[in-house]
Design a protein around this nucleic acid. Sequence first.
DNA 1: GTTGCATTTATGTATATGCTTATTAATGTA
DNA 2: TACATTAATAAGCATATACATAAATGCAAC
Lengths: 236, 236
Amino acid sequence: MRSYKEIRGILQERITSQQWQPGDLLPSEQALSEEFGCTRSTVNRAMRELADAGLVERRRKAGTRVVQPKSHPATISIPVIRQEIENKDQSYKYLLLERLEALPPEDVRAQLGLEQNEKALFLKSLHYGDGIPQQLDVRWINISALPEASQESFADIGPNDWLLQRVPHPNIEHVFRADKATAEEQRLLQLQECEPVFTIERRTWISGQGITYVRLVHPGSRYRMATRSSATPTFN
Amino acid sequence: MRSYKEIRGILQERITSQQWQPGDLLPSEQALSEEFGCTRSTVNRAMRELADAGLVERRRKAGTRVVQPKSHPATISIPVIRQEIENKDQSYKYLLLERLEALPPEDVRAQLGLEQNEKALFLKSLHYGDGIPQQLDVRWINISALPEASQESFADIGPNDWLLQRVPHPNIEHVFRADKATAEEQRLLQLQECEPVFTIERRTWISGQGITYVRLVHPGSRYRMATRSSATPTFN
DNA sequence: GTTGCATTTATGTATATGCTTATTAATGTA
DNA sequence: TACATTAATAAGCATATACATAAATGCAAC
């Protein structure tokens, strides 16, 4: 008996091999269930997963069509810097540079959804791998949403680790950029003249309430972000 | 009647609100199906989708647990530069700078899986938005895998567009970096002194056979990559 | 022609049920 | 007592069936 995974694989193969090309209409669930000698729901599951993966598009009555991709998808997982360093078997060191409660600049205030005169927690910290600075973490935390943050010194634990434990499943928005390093960044990250930085800007919130806004700054020469996410998706 | 989507939403809410915390064991499908007054399979689908989204982990017999996330997930869709420019309502211009068949350097040869003395197609092209260079495309194409490429002049269509049509669903590997611009890049992209570039390196292949290896180079000051992919995933 | 309704049909959702497997507990043996 | 082996069983996994819903199509009335 053919399982839905086998069927999914067969359909996927027909699509990637271009036996079925973008725009083509796939046979109906009914027809495929007869071809494979299974029930319609088995085919349904196979096709639904292909649709989830973006290989096909389904519309009632209109049927299932191969998608003409308009972009290259990529799924990235941004690890906590400590892990990234430890995975490379480097020694990890964390250093808190600055910690204060203050009024954030207007753009951050908006991002976190704070009141006009509401203070937030500002943290600046450095993460070293084998003694070399790898990441500068400049961050605002909404203390209305996370009052415990006021009690935490962040002397021994990085704010990223702390937050990941405290607020495990927030909504996230990322922006990646290649920036010219500021003078301070150049000094802190021990950059050479003209060396660019790779910055990750992250905003997290939970049911509308802003949690944190952070700029992660990495030396361009020592940082890369990679994905192995194939368009031919990596099913479980 | 509760639908699997409602149930999924309720469970998701309980997780994000930390009513159920990382490591906690969720009730069994059986128990939840009784709570919600539906069958086990409806609950199963809800929980399966949460597992797909990475919010929970399921193990036979052991049950379903809330995941302790170790990283921030981000799903990016890298559009073809032409679209990206047109979406910003800028005028798009494409310019082919170089086209030749030659022996690729060793690293590219390995990436594409070519024979020792096998030639490949080399393309260098520029993409403008409103007359300003936005992307430099430096690329090798495996002509054994895509003999039609030899016939195509690429004078009028960008290699990215062409390939997306020709090989719509390849496997993909991406690397993102902030680089110092080479002298040539600085000239072609009209960069200021010390302005970094955001590079996307892409390798595509299909069932083991290399298709293309490309470096997409963007002016750091004019390029950003963003994701709105929340960890609280965007279900259909 | 054009509009509108009825029909058809393809996908979407829910439920019932048997299957598979991982864990725990029981049992036996050294 | 310690460990290995086996059995029981809880839990997720897979498929079949039934019903629901949306949308394209065709036909009829105008």
